[in-house]
Each structure stands twice: as structure tokens, then as C-alpha cells.
Design a protein around this nucleic acid. Structure first.
Length: 121
DNA sequence: AGCGTGACAAGGT
DNA sequence: GACCTTGCCACGC
């Protein structure tokens, strides 16, 4: 199969909606990168749109937006400054180890099929 | 129809 | 390792 043609394979009716659906599949105590979510949706370069989609989430949303971080594991501090620290607390509440506003991606990054994890330490 | 925006990513300094 | 610059793609006006 071809590696990754620049053409859109099948653009969803609403990219934001697709992001919410995908983020909701992230198991508790696990995290993903904006670029990873975008790649799952078929647009590996639309990482910004993933963040933009989460920014459009309602205050009473059921989408675990806090489980999405930057590719390097750092928490996005853009937008509302109050949401940044809040995300760190939500992650910690789920058992994710957050150090100085950062998460060990190689350790907490969710891999579908290997949702067990536990291998930490 | 086009332009600007923005919870990002990767490369270079 | 950090900080800055460029490129990206979808959405709103």
C-alpha cells in the first residue's frame, strides 16, 4: 500500500466531530498526541485542527479532551490559561504521572491493541 | 470565492 | 535542552 499520498482519502463531514469521536475512545489513564489523533483521522498534518476541535467543545462535554497532549508530551498552555493546569490535575487524577506540566509520551501514549500498559516501572 | 485564524509538528539556531 | 521560524489543514467571516 502507498505510504501516504498528499490527497485527502476521505474527508469526514465534520473534522471536529471526528476528533471528538476519536478522543472519546481514549481509555482512562492513557494519553494521545494531537498529531496522532489527526493521523488516525487520515490527516497527519492537521494536528492544529485537532486542538481547534477540542477548543470548540462545550463546557458540559463528555469528551476527555484532557487526554490529548502535544507530540512531546507537554500540555498545551494556549487558549484559556486556566485550562492548562486543570488538564494536569485531570491527568493525575486518572493515574497519569505529570511532571512539570509534561507527560512521558513513550510511557503513557495510548496504543490501540496494547491498552493494558501497566508495564511502567 | 478567498483570506485569516489557531489547544500543533518538525527543523534549525 | 530551550527557543524561534516555517509549513499545515480545516473552519469562520
Amino acid at each position: 500500500m502507498p505510504p501516504q499520498p498528499p490527497s485527502r482519502p476521505s474527508p469526514p463531514p465534520g473534522f471536529r466531530r471526528a476528533v471528538w469521536e476519536r478522543v472519546t475512545r481514549i481509555p482512562r489513564g492513557r494519553v494521545l498526541g494531537y498529531g496522532m489523533v489527526a493521523a488516525m483521522l487520515g490527516s497527519p498534518r492537521a494536528a492544529r485542527q485537532v486542538g481547534y476541535a477540542l477548543a470548540a467543545l462545550p463546557p458540559d462535554t463528555a469528551v476527555p479532551w484532557w487526554r490529548v497532549l502535544r507530540s512531546d508530551g507537554s500540555i498545551a498552555m494556549q487558549g484559556d490559561p486556566d485550562r492548562g493546569p486543570r488538564q494536569a490535575e485531570l491527568l493525575t487524577a486518572e493515574g497519569v504521572e505529570v511532571v512539570d506540566g509534561r507527560v512521558d509520551m513513550a510511557r503513557w501514549c495510548w496504543d490501540p491493541g496494547v491498552d493494558e500498559g501497566g508495564g511502567g516501572a
